[in-house]
């Protein structure tokens, strides 16, 4: 069985043909899986929202808030057509090992409902302890109002107990929650006059609501 000669024509035809067939195959698979992947991603977001706003089931209104050059996804849980029951806000910061993505739930009065780690790359056994939702580090945020609870770890003069040996991760988690709070203030608007005195950063980042 003789191999094809390496002439320019043969090379172009064979490599081009292979690339074409592969591209066709990929577009078919992509078309088949696209919807399913989208559904999986949506289900994941919905699960995270359900975790951080446990008392509000049902659909959410999704908006995007831009604050300080970053855009954040805000999921509003509606009590009825006009009243917002709570906000689930996606934030991210740089953790110790890479990006740290959180979902933070706020009640309509601005109390933190609960937090959920969407994805992280922290050190297993040390920083990765932030994923343990029943730990003191995670529960200490629950039902706190950041207006009277300084969102910084104690070493940096705040009120949050850090995880021992994971100061950077703890600080990253805490500042992500603080970021979510500024987004909450921008998104809710009504919370601004009640609590803005304690959080000067809320007024600084020009906020505009899109979508």
């Amino acid at each position: 069985m003789e191999k094809l000669e390496s002439s320019l024509k043969n090379m172009l035809i064979s490599l081009g043909g292979i690339a074409l067939v592969c591209a066709l195959l990929l577009s078919v698979v992509n078309a088949l899986t696209e919807k399913k992947i989208l559904k999986v991603t949506e289900a994941k977001t919905a699960r995270a929202i359900a975790k951080v706003l446990p008392s509000y089931g049902g659909a959410t209104i999704d908006t995007t808030v831009t604050l300080g050059g970053e855009s954040f996804k805000v999921h509003k849980a509606m009590a009825d057509d006009t009243t917002v029951a709570g906000y689930a806000i996606e934030t991210s910061t740089a953790g110790f090992g890479g990006p740290l993505n959180l979902m933070v739930g706020f009640t309509s009065e601005g109390r933190i409902c609960s937090t959920d780690v969407i994805s992280h790359t922290e050190t297993p056994g040390l920083g990765a302890k932030i994923t343990d939702a029943s730990s003191h580090f995670r529960t200490q945020f629950e039902s706190r109002n950041p207006a009277e609870f300084n969102l910084a770890i104690k070493k940096n003069g705040g009120d949050v107990d850090a995880i021992s040996a994971s100061t950077i991760t703890s600080q990253a988690f805490t500042s992500a929650v603080a970021k979510a709070y500024s987004v909450y203030l921008a998104a809710s608007g009504n919370g601004a006059d009640a609590v803005s005195s304690a959080t000067p950063q809320a007024g600084e980042g020009g906020s505009d609501e899109a979508n």
């Binding site: 090379m11 064979s14 490599l15």
Partner: peptide
């Protein structure tokens, strides 16, 4: 498909 691929473009293929 190996026998339809000229030697010089075998790795990229």
């Amino acid at each position: 498909v190996a026998r339809f691929i000229p030697d010089k473009v075998r790795i990229p293929s």
